[in-house]
Design a protein around this nucleic acid. Structure first.
Lengths: 176, 176
DNA sequence: CGAATATTTCTGTTTATACAGAAATATCTG
DNA sequence: CAGATATTTCTGTATAAACAGAAATATTCG
């Protein structure tokens, strides 16, 4: 597989953006290649396409599988593992968010619950810290609950809601 | 300023989480210290508290000011710049999102518009790539518009909406 | 205006991550 | 089960980011 200039532009940008959000550049590039590929690719093809080592591809694919957005598929008469990427963009981002919430937000929630609980003991005697930590905890709790609830909605329903934008507030009579 | 064990726990966690989201560890730690501090701190105090170099603090504070969540304040009879952090958690995250959208999402939107426009030329003749890029573009356009619209809402209104969670869809009769 | 203090910029070093290539392991096929 | 092929793990190296400390610049005050 050889990338066209157009595809290269997307792949490089995607890698760059991934890096800014704490996702390894190569991981993001591989994701981009698989996203654009009309057929599953094997690891060696990916390594050749991007000019990176086979082992690097192997580890990066593991990472992408950890996000549940890439999976192994097998073709009859082909011994190699092949990889395909989820093509539904909405579903893809929802899966990525699921995982990042699990890895980063949930532990933060736990930490905040612990520190708030400790800070609010009268013996600690640091009301200001307690108040700040508690406000942060409230924020994370609310966001977490909001995410969990909207997560249960179907993608088309979420899209419809997003399209309404701030009209939602007006329709529900929630003052700006 | 010396951090209590409790404060250390928060500061270290915050630094770690920042790093996972592409924000420099020290930048996030300084943010955490300022967030917990009931009074503005000067750069040297911060450097001492965290045990990092003065220059490092200087650059990190610039970064935080770039996010508009930290600002310089002056006290009468004090020559040094002092820094204070926004304490309203909601407003803080909204400002961070503003900036990340500007730095990362907007350029991605631009890239996608360019590549889609190019990919859809008949001469390019790669219908599959064009379709994938276009779907990604639709997603980013929708999210971007949604963000811009909800951004105009007041924080209390956003909070009320979040608290409703998936009830919003039910109230509006949007099927799950 | 000169001394003192504060801040930023610059430069070299350190450190953590990303990575390649080799080695080891696993899997398939005849 | 032996040979071939595919995959993963391991280890050392390269690279880019983070950082400290020094130097340069700016600001304040007597």
């Amino acid at each position: 597989m050889t990338l066209t200039e157009l595809q290269k532009k997307f792949v490089l940008h995607w890698g760059e953006m991934g890096a800014r959000w704490g996702i390894n550049r190569t991981v993001a590039q591989i994701h981009a290649v698989l996203y654009l590929s009309p057929r599953p690719l094997d690891a060696e093809e990916i390594a050749d396409t991007l000019g990176v080592a086979r082992s690097n591809v192997s580890n990066s694919l593991k990472e992408l599988q950890g996000y549940n957005i890439v999976r192994i598929v097998h073709t009859l008469g082909e011994r190699r593992d092949q990889f395909e990427c989820m093509k539904d963009v909405w579903e893809m981002f929802r899966l990525i968010l699921d995982e990042r919430k699990r890895r980063e937000c949930d532990p933060t929630l736990q930490m905040l619950r612990e520190t708030v609980s400790e800070a609010e003991k009268p013996s600690t005697g640091d009301a200001y810290t307690a108040a700040r930590l508690n406000e942060m905890l409230q924020f994370f709790e609310l966001m977490s609950n909001w995410y969990d609830q909207t997560r249960k909605m179907s993608t088309p329903a979420v899209i419809r809601l997003c399209k309404l934008g701030d009209k939602v507030a007006k329709m529900l009579g929630i003052a700006g």
